[in-house]
Amino acid sequence: MKKTETYHDEALRIIMRQQAEETRKMEFPEDLADQLMQRIEQKEALKRTALQRKRRWLAVGIAAALALLVGVALHVFDQDVEKPQPQVAKKVEIKNDSIPEKETEEVTKDSANVIKEIERLQYEMPRLPVAQTTMAKDSMIEITDEPPMADVMLAENEEDSISHPHYVRNWEVYIQQMEAQMQAHIEAVDREYNEMMTYYKDY
């Protein structure tokens, strides 16, 4: 643009002034400033409300996200604790080969001997005098006073309680325990029997 470019055009200036005069005759309300200040107040109040609403939603969103995160973390953690390492259920097998065969045979033999001895005693016990029977029974009771570790369901007949394996939960344990007990019992009964026989012999 030329620096000196100006247009005087007086006629146009007069027309513009005339138009402005006509406009100036219009009555404008005086409270433009009041209306504007009120409008600004309303707008800023709306902005504050919108901002508060936004902050509220943001807080809710954050809380929900945190809750979700904690829930997921707990779920994952619980799964790790509750679920042990998957294990294949091991079939507990009592391997016979874990126990030396000889030992197994001996125990079996001993067990069989104990059973025979018990049966013998059971037959012979009624021939003994009541005192001996009582003594035997007492000793029997004495010996059996301490219940075996194995779980035993006693039969009605006390004498049958030991001879019926199906009453015993853990027969092998019971056998081992009874072996020791019966051995002691047999030795005691033998001693007494021998003493009695010696007594009768003398008579």
Binding site: D9, A11, L12, R13, I15, M16, Q19
Partner: peptide, 29 residues
């Protein structure tokens, strides 16, 4: 600036588009 010419000029300006009228007003008034 004769009155007749002013009348014709007024009509001519009023026929301009509003944005052009604004340019004229900003410059001459």
């Amino acid at each position: 600036t004769t009155s007749h010419r002013l009348t014709l000029l007024k009509q001519a300006v009023s026929q301009l588009a509003p944005d052009d009228q604004m340019l004229i007003s900003l410059y001459y008034y």
